[in-house]
Design a protein around this nucleic acid. Structure first.
Length: 468
RNA sequence: GGCCCGUUCGUCUAUCGGUUAGGACACCUGGUUUUCAACCAGGUAAGAGGGGUUCGACUCCCCUACGGGCUGCCA
């Protein structure tokens, strides 16, 4: 609070799997907050758990962030590589008298906890070494425990949750440095956040209780406590914590499903955060509007329908060239065949029309099938029905009329209307076989749009094929 | 078990003691249309329950219920 320091936020995932959608949102909030205030957004990989951390997971997290468009400042920090510094701080605490050597064995502690729990009590392990005379210390491995206050309370001034008070008596003297000299998470986060000059810690509220213990470390070292903001976790549509059984939980899965990144950002920003009635906004606008005060206190549920709707708006407002670029990236990510040069050219022409009515890239591909197929076009069952003998005759009579027409909607419209009238049918009846002939299916964009995109030559060729 | 947090339409939310409780998604109806869409107009729909405080509570306090989190020499 009232800190004169420039804003520095960070995202600090542990590399034990893909980037979770909840983690992606946490990163997004940190990113928005920093970017909106001319601050820095840092990335730190919490890889101190050597058993579970993998370089593949780190790579996946970076890919996910990159896809979401969240760029970080400076180098990615590896927490593991900072272990010497963590140990150094633990020893500094020792020297300051805010920590002590504990020789209690793990088995001893585990047994104590088991016994307490069996007795129905809350196990707070009080180490007998807390006030022991150093002269009595055995020559044995030890861990370093923080000498936490036993009485009173610790108050967390949280920007989202408000003032949270924790009784110190419910907290035991946590270990900051293990007996093998490696730091625990509680120590490492604080040391890293301090060293990285992090001013605002925005993270999941599963860390709210941890904040009290971490604040004690800040106090023990005489460091300035950062601004806390613990945001509620994302839940599945059923209100339960989001897990695999709800379907996609990884950010990259959403890319593979074909959601545009801009729509994803907009949706995720609005999930658990509001700014009046603002619903659809650009990333620049989000950066401008985002604040901690707008974050809700209750966990929000993922709603795919709204995600799709939001994505639809972003598809429609996207820049054509950028959209084509993202489509290419989508195809690669989804393992679908890339566009040929010809297809890319046609797509560029069709995009201004197609983008208005699609929500995702798979839907875009579906609507664009007329320009992706090659002659001879293979019709589906419904299209074949539409191409009955009578219809084929009509198409045949249409072909020569198209040869000389100028290729604009204004010029084509009267011709098609005339053909329809000549055959005593409405335009709707004529449109069906036209769709079938041009696209091989009955659900397509408007016939004019298709004809204009593929051009006269191709249109005539397809109609001729169908007329045979 | 203990501690901490949360609870407004089905969903995301606005409201910051006085509103016909607003918007968006979804849903329903109608319109438009060359199909599916898109688009336009309208509609249904909410303060978990119970006590207080107050002239007046969705807003403040307490209890209950429900949901979530933490309770490791994991992060």
């Amino acid at each position: 609070m009232n800190s004169p320091r420039p804003v520095v936020t960070r995202f600090a995932p542990s590399p034990t799997g893909y980037l979770h959608i909840g983690g992606g949102r946490t990163a997004l909030f940190n990113w928005l907050y920093a970017r909106g205030r001319g601050g820095k957004f840092l990335l730190r990989i919490e890889d101190t758990d050597r058993e579970r951390s993998t370089p593949e997971a780190t790579a996946a997290i970076l890919r996910g962030l990159t896809w979401l468009g969240l760029d970080w400042d400076g180098e990615v920090v590896s927490q593991f590589e900072r272990r010497d510094r963590h140990a150094e701080v633990a020893h500094a605490m020792l020297a300051r008298g805010t920590a002590y050597k504990c020789f209690a064995m793990q088995e001893e502690i585990a047994a104590f906890r088991a016994a307490e729990e069996a007795a129905g009590r809350y196990p707070v392990f009080l180490s007998p070494w807390r006030d022991a005379d150093p002269a009595t210390h055995p020559d044995a491995p030890y861990s370093i425990r923080m000498k936490a206050p036993r009485t009173g309370e610790t108050v967390i001034e949280d920007q989202v949750q408000g003032r949270v008070t924790i009784q110190n008596a419910t907290l035991d003297d946590m270990i900051v440095l293990r007996s093998d000299n490696t730091p625990t998470y509680m120590l490492a986060v604080v040391v890293d956040d301090h060293d990285m000059s992090v001013t605002h810690v925005i993270r999941g509220d599963d860390h709210l209780n941890n904040a009290a213990r971490q604040q004690m470390v800040y106090d023990a070292m005489g460091w300035e406590v950062p601004v806390w903001a613990h945001i509620p976790l994302i839940h599945g549509p059923d209100g339960k914590k989001l897990s695999k059984r709800h379907g996609a939980t990884g950010v990259e899965e959403y890319q593979v499903m074909g959601y545009p990144a801009a729509g994803m950002r907009n949706y995720l920003t609005r999930l658990g955060w509001a700014h009046g009635d603002a619903e659809i906004f650009t990333t620049a606008e989000a950066v401008e509007m985002f604040d901690l005060a707008g974050i809700g206190r209750a966990p929000a549920r993922l709603d795919f329908k709204k995600l799709e709707n939001t994505c639809g708006h972003h598809m429609a407002m996207a820049d054509d060239a950028a959209l084509l670029h993202e489509l290419t990236a989508y195809l690669a990510a989804a393992g679908r065949p890339p566009l040929t040069d010809l297809q890319a050219n046609l797509m560029a022409k069709a995009l201004p029309v197609l983008k208005k009515s699609v929500k995702t890239f798979p839907e875009l591909i579906e609507k664009a099938s007329f320009l992706l197929v090659q002659r001879p076009i293979i019709s589906d069952d419904k299209a074949r029905e539409a191409l009955d003998t009578v219809s084929r005759g009509i198409l045949k009579s249409l072909t020569p009329r198209l040869q000389n027409a100028s290729w604009t909607k204004e010029a084509l419209e009267p011709i098609l209307n005339e053909i329809a009238a000549d055959n005593g049918i409405g335009f709707g009846k004529l449109a069906a076989p036209l769709r079938a002939a041009i696209a091989g299916r009955t659900v397509t964009p408007s016939v004019y749009d298709m004809m204009l995109v593929i051009g006269r030559e191709e249109t005539v060729a397809r109609l001729s094929d169908a007329g045979k």
